[in-house]
Simulated assay, not measured.
Amino acid sequence: MNKTSYKLRFYYILILAVLIINMLSGCNTTTNSSNEISEQAESENDTFDKGTVYTMLVTNSNSNEALKEKFTIPVDNLEQPFKSTFENVGKDREFVMTVFYDYEQIEFSVDDTKNFSDKYVFSLKDNEEASFNFYLDPTIKTDGKSHKLLVNFIAGYDVYAKDIGTFDNSYGINTLYDIYYTSYNNDLDNDNEYINMENIQTSQTIFHDFISLPLALNTDYDNQQQEDSMIAYPENPMIVEPNENVELMYNISNESYDSAAFITMLGYQQINMDEKSYFYIPLSKYDNSVYNGSFSFKAPSKKGFYEVIGMVIFDPDKTASESNQFNGQYSLRFTLQVK
């Protein structure tokens, strides 16, 4: 059976299963990203895109089947394009693409325009696929180390969470790749030095024997509800003044990982949390606990609505083959209103 037939058959089976589950339980489904056919990642989306399935793949001219299975991309130079393929099945929708390099958002250029931006917005109809080349910011650091490339597609760019009426973490798909530069080393398995994680956070409160979502942004500032294994979610919208110092709490649930990287986006742009672009959080492996901490950021000066989206990547300082982690997990999405 060829890949196209397998892929279509997989879609029909998945969509049928989702419909059966919904009829039997009446419950919302949650995001599920996996590597079902080695080089692809799937996500079933409910509240923002009920019954929608996404697939994505990022490669370049050096990619082969073995490298795809390892989520690894050798890069000759920054003039070499990456190829992105993204497919939308189930509903017409507007998307925004963002790219992170070593967990920091970077600019990129789509096709040969050389117009670099930190996001790319596009629309797809049901059963439609977008395939395009993109180039990384030519000023990023290249060296003999292995680096992380996180490519992220979020649905509902034209929709605010405040208008949905409920919190949701099923609104997109992303995939994490190991990249290395062939001018320094032609073999990733040849003991490439890995990136050094910075912004280490060690001041969390740990709640044992309590597992919730992988990442939950919340407003339980005194941890009163945490003691009862509950979470206080923000108002939606959360209303603030221009340039106000906004404080949030975060919960990161850990079952089997050594560490986590935590990113927050506001209006699809990465923000500094306590003046840091991301948090790197050491975890106790297999401790079945929630790591709880706080952070603050400055609200925009411009009045309007901004989507708040967090993302946690487990074992961020390991290769995909070592960690078996190929994507980040989203927080529940909500809207910040600068009024």
Rank of each mutant, 00 (worst) to 15 (best):
D187N: 15
F279D: 01
F167S: 11
L19W: 05
G267H: 11
G144R: 08
D158N: 15
V121Q: 08
Y11I: 11
E247D: 10
T205R: 12
V89P: 00
P214C: 00
F100T: 00
E128Y: 05
S284A: 13
T264F: 09
N2D: 15
F326S: 08
E275C: 00
D143K: 01
A299Y: 04
L8N: 11
N28G: 05
N64D: 15
V151H: 07
N223G: 15
Y194N: 08
Y171K: 09
E247H: 09
I173N: 10
P81M: 12
F132E: 03
I263K: 07
D317W: 10
S259I: 06
N28L: 07
E44D: 03
G90Y: 00
N245Y: 13
E39M: 09
L57C: 06
F295C: 05
F326I: 14
G51W: 07
G156N: 14
D189H: 01
K91Y: 02
Q40G: 01
K119L: 09
D222F: 15
N64V: 06
Q105F: 02
N196M: 02
S61T: 10
K148W: 06
L283K: 10
D317N: 13
M97H: 12
G310I: 04
S212L: 06
A216G: 02
V121S: 05
S331P: 03
S63I: 09
D137I: 05
G51T: 07
N196L: 04
T219P: 05
R9D: 13
P214F: 05
V121W: 09
E104R: 13
F279L: 11
K145Y: 06
L176T: 00
S294R: 11
S284P: 00
I164F: 09
T52Q: 12
E307H: 10
E307T: 14
I20A: 10
P300I: 14
N192M: 02
E87P: 01
Y291F: 14
G172H: 07
I106F: 03
F314W: 06
S131L: 01
Y286S: 11
F48A: 11
T31Y: 04
K148D: 00
F82T: 08
S43P: 00
S61K: 12
Q226N: 14
K303N: 12
I15S: 08
F10S: 09
F122L: 01
D126T: 09
Q80T: 09
I309R: 07
E129F: 03
A232Q: 15
Y54A: 07
I206V: 15
I20S: 01
S289G: 04
